[in-house]
Simulated scan of single mutants.
Amino acid sequence: MLREKIAANLEEAFSKYGFAQPSVAQLKSACNVSLRTLYKHYPSKEAMIIAALEYRHKKYIAFLLSESHSTGIDSVLHIFEKLNQWMAEFAPNGCLSLNAIAAFPEDIGMKETVRRHKEEVHDLLKQLSQREDLSTELFLLHESVSSVWPIMGKASVTSAQKIIKQLWSAQSHV
């Protein structure tokens, strides 16, 4: 329980301050634990970031699935509405996973954590769309929105949804 609470606080701190700025002392304060307790659960800053990313992944998937009970195009369009809401509320600086890879390009554990996250998002889009033939395109649109949202905001989601409708229609006629 404490371990998950620490991960949640780390996720919030890294989302707010990025990866370069917060020192371990600042992270300890953000988690409201002693330095010993923090290091007991996460022995390095990289381990702290991985814990934050794993916590965020669970939070993100649960967020995407909230209020969605359908499949097909309506479900996919809903996912993109949820993505817009997520970006506005929790990721105004862009995708935390991609930011982690940019900050720590050589860290294999971090790359693997991000790979698993992205793979699960891709699988979720495939499952909800029930369109294996479009799953990669949907995933690329999702990733594009999360990358450009800090600059374009809602317009990126609106454009992605327009493209989704066009892809859906074009592939339905083939």
Rank of each mutant, 00 (worst) to 15 (best):
M1S: 13
L2K: 11
E4F: 06
I6N: 00
I6V: 10
I6E: 00
A7E: 14
N9H: 03
L10W: 02
E11K: 10
E12T: 06
A13T: 06
A13Y: 00
S15G: 03
S15P: 00
K16W: 04
K16F: 04
K16V: 07
F19R: 01
F19H: 07
P22S: 02
V24H: 05
A25F: 00
Q26F: 00
Q26C: 04
C31L: 04
C31W: 00
C31P: 08
N32K: 08
V33A: 06
L35I: 07
R36I: 14
L38Q: 04
K40H: 13
Y42K: 08
K45W: 05
I49D: 05
A52S: 15
L53Y: 03
H57W: 01
K58H: 12
K59A: 09
L65F: 01
S66Y: 03
H69F: 10
G72Q: 09
I73C: 13
I73K: 06
S75C: 14
L77C: 05
L77M: 10
H78Y: 15
F80D: 05
E81F: 00
K82R: 11
K82D: 06
N84C: 07
M87R: 01
M87Q: 03
A88V: 14
A88C: 15
L96H: 03
S97M: 13
I101L: 07
I101E: 09
A102Y: 03
F104H: 10
F104G: 01
F104I: 08
P105F: 07
E106F: 09
E106D: 15
I108Q: 13
I108N: 14
G109P: 06
M110A: 04
M110N: 02
M110K: 02
T113M: 12
R115L: 09
H117D: 12
K118H: 12
E119C: 07
E119F: 09
V121S: 01
V121T: 06
V121F: 00
L125I: 11
K126F: 09
L128G: 01
S129P: 03
Q130S: 06
R131N: 02
E132W: 14
L134D: 04
S135Q: 11
H142C: 11
H142L: 11
E143W: 04
V148S: 04
W149Y: 09
W149S: 00
M152I: 12
G153V: 10
A160C: 10
Q161C: 12
K162T: 14
I163S: 07
I164V: 15
Q171M: 11
Q171Y: 13
